[in-house]
């Protein structure tokens, strides 16, 4: 069976005054109908990896790859017009801050209805029914009221759930969530994760979950890629993340304070230049 997504030798480069900056360096992985986590510090290339799958890297940034296949079709070979269709219908992306993704001067209901009609070409009343259904699917208790609300009238957690609802309207095969819960606090975070989890299971969707939070990824995902300086330094089953071997991954884990193990001082990550030089590993 063809995997949902195959990424082979992906590079993202930015020309800068001091030379070429390689933001992503030779990353390869495949994805089935599962939850793949990408973790690493800020600047390690997580977002660039996610965005390049959608070919959303703006010039002067350049993306090269042997291939990026979605259901066997190489996205690298598609025209910009074809890519727009892929973005609208087959792959959706949720970003960290819903404030930047929702239209501030349009009610939530109108935005959902419009999004649905763009994809499904149904009547307005049908679109309205579906929009209400989407809000219920992301556990919004009073969807009628929320439909009338404008984005600034919603809490961060509510806004993020609406973003997810919006992204799910076209019934995508793949959802890329870039730090979708990092701006939310723990209690709300758990709700949003549960919603995404259910959607992966019920709809057989693939999920790329980008986060800097190791514990969250360990609990929530099936597999994990750990990135450092644009490379994948280690990959593992998510529930084995705490047994990770690479000194970078170990260093990150050890720098976390723990409820069950008091320490006088926290361990500080000591970086080894060789981490950035060893070629990306590929998941087995």
């Amino acid at each position: 069976m063809t995997p949902l997504l195959e990424v082979e030798d992906l590079w993202v480069r930015f020309p800068t005054r001091t030379g070429i900056l390689d933001a992503v360096r030779g990353v390869s992985f495949t994805l089935g109908r599962e939850r793949l986590g990408i973790v690493g510090e800020s600047g390690s290339g997580k977002s660039m990896t996610g965005r390049s799958i959608l070919r959303l890297i703006r010039p002067p940034g350049q993306v090269t790859a042997a291939h990026i296949r979605l259901d066997g079709e190489d996205l690298m070979q598609k025209s910009e017009a074809q890519m727009r269709q892929v973005r609208g219908e087959r792959i959706s992306m949720v970003m960290q801050d819903p404030k930047f993704s929702l239209n501030p001067v349009m009610s939530v209901g109108d935005q959902l209805i419009e999004a649905w009609r763009v994809h499904k070409k149904g009547s307005r009343s049908e679109a309205r029914e579906r929009a209400l259904g989407m809000l219920e699917a992301v556990s919004i208790r009073d969807p009628e009221r929320v439909m009338r609300a404008h984005p600034h009238e919603l809490s961060g957690g509510m806004g993020q759930r609406i973003m997810i609802a919006m992204m799910l309207i076209p019934d995508p095969e793949l959802l890329i969530a870039d730090e979708p819960t990092s701006a939310l606090d723990v209690s709300v975070q758990a709700q949003v994760l549960q919603i995404m989890d259910r959607l992966v299971q019920d709809r057989g969707m693939g999920l790329i979950f980008i986060s800097h939070d190791l514990n969250l990824v360990a609990d929530f995902c099936d597999r994990v890629l750990i990135m450092y300086a644009g490379r994948v330094v280690e990959t593992c089953e998510a529930d084995k993340l705490h047994e990770a071997k690479h000194p970078y991954t170990r260093g990150l884990l050890n720098s976390l304070p723990r409820l069950d193990a008091p320490q006088k001082r926290l361990e500080v990550l000591r970086r080894d230049p060789s981490w950035a030089e060893t070629p990306s590993v590929r998941p087995s």
Partner: peptide, 14 residues
């Protein structure tokens, strides 16, 4: 902050 940086800042505060 990243967890690696968090550790440095918490140590500094201590």
């Amino acid at each position: 902050l990243d967890v690696s940086v968090q550790a440095e800042i918490l140590n500094l505060l201590t």
